[in-house]
Amino acid sequence: MIALISTPWPDVPSLLGPALGETVRLVAIVMTVVVALGLPLGLLIFNTSPLGLAPHRLLHVSVSWISNLGRSLPFLVLMAAVIPATKVLFGTTVGFQAALLPMAIAGVAFFSRITENAVREVPRELLDVGLAGGSTRWQIVTGIQLKEAVPGLVAGFTINLIAMIEYSAIAGAIGSGGVGYLAVNYGYRRFDQNIMLACIVVLVAIVQALQFSGDRAVRALTR
């Protein structure tokens, strides 16, 4: 009985194609925000720490606390919690826009820690080279710290990107659109096994491909 209402295979691409496009668009927008905000936040967390270029206890503790806050809640809870803010910001509580805010919050918090870890791996002695040579702090951050941390940042970016694809599927629960939404509405609610299977295949393929490319990039960037 259940199998009878499955979408016929020839019709699957017409559903899956647009859903894939939505996922790509959602994740791309979120990742842009994630890097734009998470990277500076991570640099701030590290460089205000006692090991950083400008130790500042109060600032470090505050920024660190904010970053932890964004990572404290399970994504489903976070999504529900920020609904009032989403309503103010986008005027809606469902759909594409509704998923943006919680995903950006979780992603920025995540990437700030990834950045902090990546720059922490840069040997302190290399920062000393810049300091002793009269480089400005900004030059040291951009020319030494970030430059040396690139492989770690790319590896972290890959992890973050895959996590965001996962979150986009969870956001399907509030009707965000995309592959996750398709899987929830057709695969789960309507027991459409063909759609479910197609969604699984597509998600697995995307994640495998991204991880493979990320690993290759890290290897190419490591000297």
Binding site: P123, L126, D128, V129, G134, S135, G143, E148
Partner: peptide
């Protein structure tokens, strides 16, 4: 600029070539 330092184990940036390492203080 008046004091150049040669560090123990050189402390070169791993992701810069020899020439780029030497160029770093000049660029900065």
């Amino acid at each position: 600029r008046e004091i150049g330092t040669v560090f123990q184990s050189a402390n070169l940036l791993r992701r810069l070539t020899a020439a780029e390492n030497v160029a770093l203080p000049l660029r900065h």
